[in-house]
Design a protein around this nucleic acid. Structure first.
Lengths: 337, 337
DNA sequence: AGTTGATTTGAAAACGCTTTCGTGAAAGCA
DNA sequence: TGCTTTCACGAAAGCGTTTTCAAATCAACT
């Protein structure tokens, strides 16, 4: 089988040393324009590609980032991943992907597995299991070993690392104002993510604002599991006189909408629904769901850029460790004009 | 900052040579049980992890597979990726992810970028752009350079490589039978993927069966772009007397369903819909879509196992290069009992 | 005691790259 | 011409592993 060209091979063919060839390819000032050209030409001709393992070994950097996601069949995380990947490929970085499946153990395993120098850093959103258990030593281990860590969306408050989040609490508050302005008094929170940080933040933001304002009522329907959620939702529809629903995640939103259909409730005339996450599911529902857009792709890009900065300014201290993105409301078919 | 333990460091502490330590950690028969134990203990104590770059360089294998997907915010590809990832992590392989965004150029760039020894092989589904253009030299380059390549779902017929696909044509044929048995005569194909291989195969399977049988009528609504698709769909609903729709992809399915809602067509009483891909969108639609399940996660696992075999039996010739998985119909709310 | 064989360990090279440092040649200047 | 400076290149070391081959030790058998 055909042998991949190496520096040595190029050097032989050109009657040069590997050092010269290496420098020439890096456009070093030490090398004459003439030989640079010769080297570049042959390299192109032979399809030379530097061996990454060798470069990693020598340079002590892998140009690889591990991305640990709680799940992947989920538009939000998918979009974030897109953003990360896009930015990474532009900067000539590789992304290795790990799916924790919301499990603390898997998350830990992955972090251990890659803490040997296989990657330069981690981008991650905490697994539900981790947030429930509240065990964070694996994060500390990573940080202590000098690897970079940037968390997004589902972050650990007590952890001293860089974080990219959205204004979950503030947005919740804004939604209440929005619904009140439409005349709704009886608001229901629907959630399948009440065990993760963002779910709690959103709920808190809503709750606080409801208490600040007068004459508003709040219900909560929360369950991770579809069927329990649906029966709870149905119960709430029947006994409480719900004017509007704020769904803290796409699944809760779509299930609430479907249940409303089933019960013959007219959306948005009799019931308004706002849903977190600008997902395809929300876009292709009927009617199209009004959503809180987290600008997830942008979030992914920002997250990558942040870790890139950490990697570059090796010793400089970052001042602002937490970066908050502002969400925006996309009004569609489940809210009134 | 703290220095990662290496073989050399372990060796010094134990008063051994690196060779011995290396062998001991690999449980070589050359080494006495006693020293093996000593080495193992210290290694564990110090948290030794072999440097992957060094091992890659020496062993000429990276234990890394590049996965190139046309898109990631798509339940089918997401599920396949899950399967791949699951199997990979079990076999101690890494997955680097690339998103071609349906573009021929990006696909090519990625394959070039990784064809240097950064990965041991590729798992991929062809981008729409590639299938449209019909340019496949980049695949040949990969194969010639000795890297392994396994394609899934969107494969290139003329390419001599391993492929994992589903019985697209056959399943199309079965769907026709199914619908006919329910009394439908006027079938409409809805597609946003008529430019990719699987879309064409499914359509062909349906078309052939319709021609074989008597008294059936076939319409086609196909457009990649949402708004054009929707207006075409609406036109078809109004002029053709459609009994049922076979949607070749999830987007087409959900859009057809929504349009039916909009026009007040009762599903499934007046119109049956069957949709390819067992996606969340289909599961959480109202009513829930009847779908063709491609067992996508299983497909992902099979794909990884295939490439793993290629990697192991380096010289052995694989006999069956194409592996076809059987799809199954999941009857839900958009078809009649 | 001498030879053999088995057992356990080590020295050294290699994987492909980068970088420091050194060297020879050409150029500049007096 | 003799000196320094600049320019262009090469030698060599080292990144952390793995593996081949040789060496050392010790027991066993003549």
């Amino acid at each position: 089988m055909y042998q991949k060209p190496t520096l040595k091979l190029l050097a032989e063919k050109l009657q040069l040393s590997t050092s010269t060839v290496s420098k020439a390819l890096k456009d070093s000032a030490e090398i004459s324009v003439d030989t640079k050209k010769r080297v570049a030409e042959l390299a192109k001709l032979m399809g030379y590609r530097p061996n990454t393992a060798a470069a990693s070994l020598r340079n002590r950097e892998t140009r690889t980032i591990a991305v640990i996601l709680p799940e992947i069949v989920n538009d939000f995380f998918g979009q974030v991943l897109m953003g990360i990947e896009e930015e990474a490929s532009q900067h000539n970085y590789k992304i290795v992907i790990c799916i924790s499946n919301e499990s603390y153990e898997k998350e830990m395993d992955y972090m251990e597995m890659f803490s040997n120098g296989a990657v330069d850093g981690f981008i991650m959103a905490a697994a539900m299991g981790t947030q429930e258990l509240g065990k964070f030593e694996h994060y500390h281990n990573i940080l202590n070993s000098g690897l970079k860590l940037v968390m997004f969306d589902r972050v650990i408050d007590s952890l001293d690392c860089d974080k990219i989040i959205v204004d979950d609490a503030a947005s919740g508050s804004r939604l209440v104002d929005f619904l009140k302005s439409k005349g709704d008094r009886n608001i229901c929170i629907a959630s399948t993510i009440s065990k993760v940080s963002v779910g709690q933040l959103r709920e808190q933001g809503i709750r606080n604002r409801v208490e600040e304002l007068d004459g508003l009522q709040l219900n909560v329907v929360a369950h991770e599991e579809d069927s329990s959620f649906l029966t709870q939702m149905e119960g709430s529809f029947k006994k409480d006189n719900i004017h509007s629903i704020i769904a803290l995640d796409q699944r809760a939103g779509i299930m609430a909408l479907n249940k409303a259909h089933e019960l013959g409730i007219k959306v948005p005339q009799e019931l308004q629904i706002i849903c977190y996450s600008n997902s395809n599911m929300a876009k292709y529902s009927y009617p199209q769901l009004t959503v809180v857009d987290q600008h997830s792709r942008e979030l992914g890009k920002k997250t990558f850029i942040r870790i890139l900065n950490l990697l570059k300014n090796k010793d400089e201290v970052q001042v602002t460790k937490v970066h908050t993105l502002k969400t925006s409301l996309i009004e569609r078919g489940t809210t009134r004009k």
